[in-house]
Design a protein around this nucleic acid. Structure first.
Lengths: 209, 209
DNA sequence: TTAAAAAAGTTGCAAATGCAACAATAAAGT
DNA sequence: ACTTTATTGTTGCATTTGCAACTTTTTTAA
């Protein structure tokens, strides 16, 4: 993933953030961000620490929507944080820079070269997001557990240029990503093994044939 | 959705497209685009006509991934068109402008104000896409047909600021969007009616209570 | 190094879903 | 106006899936 400040010097970054009226906030570990920010249209850049976007459904089940690392970008609007089931929780003491999206999009003849770089970096990040989301939708719209698993495995195989690869999720997380029941997934993985479509042990997968 | 040439004059647009080495291609009705373009990282802008991004699975079932109207933007990479199951088919005689993504992202001190406007418009379009996709993922990750339907209905209701609204899909398309079997969906809609959670007739839905 | 917690792996069973195959309407085309 | 095509609505049935309730293994932390 592109760094949003790629090709921008520390000095330029400072100026840029000032021009965009960015606000930097500190959060303790295990804190909800949404209680401290108005949920208008902001983008957040995680500068220190780590966090998770989560969804809590009506019976209290928590699903991790995404993991945020240093450099991760999220949007209060486009990441659905205005949806009452959604929240961001810090996993460590964290430091986040917020920028109003409208400020970013304000056209201004005087805007500098580093602003343009920033725009380009942001565009790169957004198109990566679209790609990653399309990939997920492509999987989620498969009807059966088997098809979901295989589509995911094929994608991973392509990414690593190899029929054998290691899952970047643990199996519990994989079930969440595929939005299927973990035990049903385990059952289906076993069947894929029995049908000699894959070999697998733990998080090592080999696609056969 | 933002027009990608918003705030850009016809003259400026011409210059911009030249600078970005854009290519304009004509396609007859019911033609596959992918046979005429290399599948590298391009963005396409539909200037005339209409088209659909489709996915054809291994048993020949075709799913409409998205409908493209005049002004619609798609990416050969981020729209998964490098995936062999995907294609774009024109629905009418169409005219599409292609721009190499790398050209868009090339940083150049001399770049003009209209280029900046273009970047901002594109950024707007991309963040809309991310939002729309997150909305869909939010629905697709629900486990049951009932939850998918209700989540979709709540979203629509919010959009229209009303408990009563008309579906913008027909029911067959809705089932595709939710990635569930149409007859199973009909059954569940009937149950939602019986349980007095919604009122519905045809594509008119009212959320009760 | 041992205790505790998390993840992996299993299974029975009830419930939900997809599929197939229709009939009934509605919409579109000639 | 009439034919054709698309959409809606319905049902029985087999299969898949989720859920609950476990055991076993692995990882983490005290």
């Amino acid at each position: 993933m592109t760094n949003i400040f790629k090709n921008i010097s520390v000095k330029e970054k400072k100026k840029l953030l000032k021009e965009l009226e960015a606000i930097r906030l500190d959060f303790d570990k295990n804190t909800s961000l949404l209680k401290r920010i108005s949920s208008s249209n902001l983008i957040g850049i995680l500068e220190k620490g780590s966090a998770q976007i989560i969804r809590t459904d009506y019976n209290g089940n928590v699903i991790i929507i995404s993991d945020l690392q240093v450099g991760s970008v999220f949007g209060t609007k486009f990441s659905l944080l205005d949806n009452s089931e959604y929240d961001i929780i810090t996993k460590e003491d964290s430091n986040i820079v917020f920028i109003d999206y409208d400020y970013i999009l304000r056209i201004d003849q005087k805007r500098s070269i580093y602003y343009q770089k920033f725009l380009i970096n942001l565009l790169n990040i957004m198109s990566d997001m679209v790609y990653v989301q399309n990939e997920r939708i492509n999987i989620l719209t498969r009807k059966t557990t088997r098809e979901k698993l295989l589509e995911y495995f094929y994608n991973e195989s392509k990414k690593y240029f190899s029929k054998t690869f290691y899952l970047s999720f643990n199996l519990t997380e994989l079930a969440e990503y595929l939005s299927i029941d973990r035990s049903a997934m385990m059952r289906e993985i076993k069947r894929l093994r029995e049908d000699k479509i894959i070999k697998s042990s733990g998080n090592k997968i080999t696609i056969l044939n």
